[in-house]
Amino acid sequence: MSRPEPVVTVALDPDWAAGALVADVRRGLGSQPRTLPPKWLYDDAGSDLFDRITRLPEYYPTECERAILREHADDIVSACDATTVVELGSGTSDKTRTLLDAFAAAGSLERFVPVDVSEQTLRDAAAMLSERYLAVRVEALVGDFTLHLGHLPRGGRRLVAFLGGTIGNFYVEERAAFLGALHDSLEPGDWFLLGTDLVKSTDRLIAAYDDAEGVTAAFVTNALHVLNRELGADFDVEAFSYVPFWDPRQERMDLRLRADMPHRVTIPGADLVVDLAHGEEIRVEISTKFRPERLRDELAAAGFEAERTWTDPADEFALTLARRLP
């Protein structure tokens, strides 16, 4: 069978990353409390470190989600009438292949749309996927899923998959904005498959984000290496300690870097000088954990109805299938 050639659409300005990094640094480090968006953790070194994190014995989300997909991919396919699968933040689409296999086996998969900011990763994945699924059109989109949902291909019944618990990295108002934008980009009856980490014991959570090998600490600290390299900053990386803690009020893990001494940082690429006091912290990432009722409420507020939820046997992670309401 001759396969359709993959199509790659580039919606991302090639200078986007440089401009966005400067804007984020000025906004986040130039005000109180100090923050850095987690997307800047994922340079080559950061991506390698995160891949190591997913394999750590303490870090459960990746394997829990894989297990749910292995167990329930056929149920997901049966529960919806999608012919197009869209994956946000797809990378190599590693986990999603389990879902795509189930759609393909059912004969209902006509098109796959992986979305990612890394053009080369996406081109490589698109070529591989078009070989794996000979009858499926692969229409990749190089874009930021917080900015380019309006560029998603139209037509057919779509299922948007947003896996990995990534939505937990958004603050409440950011989640609402993202879900609202997704609602506006879909048609009534389109589907949304969302992966979320669930609230669990504090000990289990702390262990997952403060592993014995120190890989997560290296991953979060890598944000400073990125600023030193990309913007000519002079962070003394050794002068910071990694501080993870559970915020019970917001029900989220809060991952920060704490200055172990007074520290003046010059960031020429952002035209910024930052004076950090001893003990002052930079929040690098949050990871919100959800309760089913809270998730249903947030989806409903954005115009989605949660129809099915699947969890792993220990109820640590969930996949929720929701439908876009008229």
Rank of each mutant, 00 (worst) to 15 (best):
V273C: 00
H263Q: 04
E238D: 13
A239K: 15
L272Q: 06
D271L: 06
D247I: 10
L255M: 15
E238Q: 13
D234G: 01
D275K: 08
D254T: 12
V237Q: 03
P248L: 01
L257R: 02
P262T: 12
Y242H: 05
L272D: 03
Q250K: 12
E238R: 09
A233N: 08
W246H: 12
Y242S: 07
T266F: 07
V265A: 08
A239L: 15
R258A: 15
R252N: 01
A233Y: 05
D271E: 14
E238F: 00
P248D: 01
P262Y: 06
R264E: 10
F240C: 04
R252Q: 14
L272T: 05
H278V: 06
D275A: 11
P262F: 03
D234Q: 08
P244E: 06
H278G: 13
M261N: 00
P244F: 03
R264C: 05
E251A: 13
F245I: 01
D260F: 02
T266S: 14
S241P: 02
M253G: 11
P262R: 08
P244W: 01
R264A: 09
F240A: 02
L272W: 05
V237W: 02
M261R: 14
D271H: 06
G232E: 14
D247K: 09
D254L: 04
P262Q: 06
M261T: 13
A233K: 11
G232C: 12
L257C: 11
G279K: 03
R264N: 02
F235C: 05
G269S: 12
R252K: 13
A239P: 15
G232M: 12
A239Q: 15
P268T: 13
I267H: 07
D236I: 13
D247Q: 12
E280A: 04
D260S: 11
M253I: 11
P244C: 01
L272R: 05
Q250S: 10
A233P: 07
D236G: 12
R256F: 05
M253F: 03
E251W: 04
T266K: 11
E238I: 04
M253L: 14
L255K: 06
